[in-house]
Amino acid sequence: MQVIQELEREQIKPDVPDCGPGDTVRVHVRVSEGGKERVQVFEGTVIARQHGSVRESIIVRKLSHGVGVERTFLLHSPKIDKIEVTRRGLVRRAKLYYLRGKVGKATRIKERRER
């Protein structure tokens, strides 16, 4: 078992930002199309952070042209260039799946202010 942990540790990024449910993030993803590589930005609210070790991921939700879009990002994936946290949210649960059924004002999240 120790060997497996060692192998996983080699791939874990040391600089994964502390981002959790309620936070608004900008995820920079490396996209390669036609042999070229460019960086695409996906901005939205983190509605869940799940799994652990190399499999750790976040689900980011945003509204695109009135349609809800959710993407799962593996935090330790080499395809992720960087993750910026633009806003901290104050929420009382770990999974914000209730946001899926809501639009507009109902999807607001209180901002968390460090005291």
Binding site: I4, L7, E8, Q11, V54, R55, P78, K79
Partner: peptide, 10 residues
């Protein structure tokens, strides 16, 4: 376990 390959897939 699961690991990332050269092209970044888990």
């Amino acid at each position: 376990t699961s690991l990332y390959d050269a092209s970044g897939n888990l």
